[in-house]
């Protein structure tokens, strides 16, 4: 008898608690920015592709679901000719993001990737590349690398001294 009253009392109390259940899909769950969901390729602050096609994400991937081919433009800037992620294999471990030396590959708070056909889970570069910087703002790999690319000559990097003059005898 006492337990019955206790149960009714508890139910009554819950009427005044905050609701936990969300009416998905009408309402979306608030996800933290570091949620490991759908992978994107980002751009640097100057709008160029961040990915330099170093293959480190591909080697870090434990399920080998990333494949790409490197190429370079006429000024020596490296970028992926094509970049493919097979999300039907991806386990969203985030190793690719950790391995990426340029903040190009990032996992985003988006898990809504259900498809009726597995083929539709194969994302190519045009599906992956976004127009913004993603989570990490302000970083441009080529500004700190020693490589000269179009628009950045030798010695114009943030950490560079001007190129050595081989003809001078001054110390």
């Amino acid at each position: 008898m006492l337990s019955l009253i206790r149960t009714v009392w508890l139910v009554l109390l819950h009427m005044f608690h905050r609701r936990v259940t969300i009416q998905y899909p009408e309402h979306k769950a608030p996800l933290p920015p570091r949620w490991r969901g759908r992978i994107i390729l980002s751009r640097d602050p100057d709008g160029g592709e961040r990915c330099v096609a170093c293959y480190l994400c591909a080697i870090a991937c434990p399920v080998d679901c990333i494949a790409l081919q490197a190429t370079q433009d006429e000024h020596g800037r490296r970028y992926p000719e094509w970049f493919r992620i097979n999300f039907s294999r991806c386990i969203f471990c985030g190793f690719c993001e950790e391995a990426c030396p340029t903040y190009a590959i990032q996992l985003t708070p988006d898990f809504e990737m259900s498809e009726y056909h597995r083929e539709n889970l194969v994302y190519e570069k045009e599906d992956l590349l976004i127009s913004g910087q993603g989570k990490y703002h302000g970083y441009n790999f080529y500004r700190v690398a020693g490589l000269a690319i179009g628009g950045k000559d030798k010695g114009q990097g943030e950490e560079d001294r001007p190129p050595v003059d081989l003809r001078t005898l001054l110390p």
Binding site: Y55, I59, D64, C65, I66, L68, R84, I85, R89, V122
Partner: peptide, 15 residues
């Protein structure tokens, strides 16, 4: 032993 992309190379043709 570190060969990468095994499950993505041919995925555009067949998953």
């Amino acid at each position: 032993h570190r060969y990468s992309g095994r499950t993505a190379i041919h995925a555009a043709v067949n998953v």
